[in-house]
């Protein structure tokens, strides 16, 4: 098994890791310590004090609130989307591209879906305007609750780390 330095993992997060190392990461068995190093690299990047429990996206995390010890979904900018078990999208700002005009803002003519069939739903952070997700469903489709991680099992049984404290 290969292992990598904290610096290399930090470069991976930044997208600045050299190809040779990236290729080694791809082709060699996985390094189980990556998760810890990943958390460290991300924690060093963010401006908030809350402890990152699980990264969800490039700017979105499940964190342990420093004040309350509750686990919440939180943006880079510190905006809180609510309890980590809830669908954060329900607490986001949404813009739906459901007309041809709105679609041709982003794709050339004929190269976007027909909005009678499919729409694009863009979910933004209400504070900083980061686009955290783009859904591409039919009209009427429920907002999808993408991911419900089993964080306890992951920490305890899979990566052998203590589960961060959680107040409910």
């Amino acid at each position: 098994m290969s292992t990598y330095t904290n610096e290399q993992v930090a470069h991976l997060v930044e997208g600045s890791l050299d190809w040779e190392t990236t290729f080694r990461m791809l082709s060699m068995p996985k390094d189980n310590s990556r998760f810890e190093q990943y958390l460290k690299a991300l924690q060093a990047k963010v401006s908030f004090k809350d402890k990152i429990v699980l990264p969800l996206g490039p700017h979105l995390y499940i964190v342990q609130s420093a004040k309350t010890k509750r686990w919440v979904t939180q943006c880079d900018c510190g905006h809180v989307f609510g309890d980590y078990r809830e669908n954060w999208k329900l607490h986001a700002a949404i813009y739906v591209r459901d007309t041809e005009e709105a679609m041709t803002e982003v794709y050339p003519k004929l190269m976007a879906p027909d909005t009678q069939w499919q729409v694009y739903r863009e979910y933004y952070c209400p504070s900083c305007g980061t686009m955290h997700d783009v859904e591409a469903p039919t009209p009427w489709y429920p907002v999808i609750h993408d991911f419900e991680p089993d964080i306890e099992a992951f920490y305890k049984d899979w990566v052998g780390l203590p589960v961060p404290e959680r107040a409910d």
């Binding site: 700002a93 949404i94 813009y95 009678q116 069939w117 933004y124 209400p126 009427w140 907002v143």
Partner: peptide, 28 residues
């Protein structure tokens, strides 16, 4: 982005109306 967006739950009220009224293309 934020100027043109709505809180998701607000938008859901509008979409719900469209569902109640069966307002969508036949294929959907």
């Amino acid at each position: 982005r934020l100027a043109r967006a709505l809180p998701t739950r607000e938008w859901m009220k509008e979409e719900r109306e469209r569902i109640i009224n069966k307002h969508a293309a036949v294929q959907v």
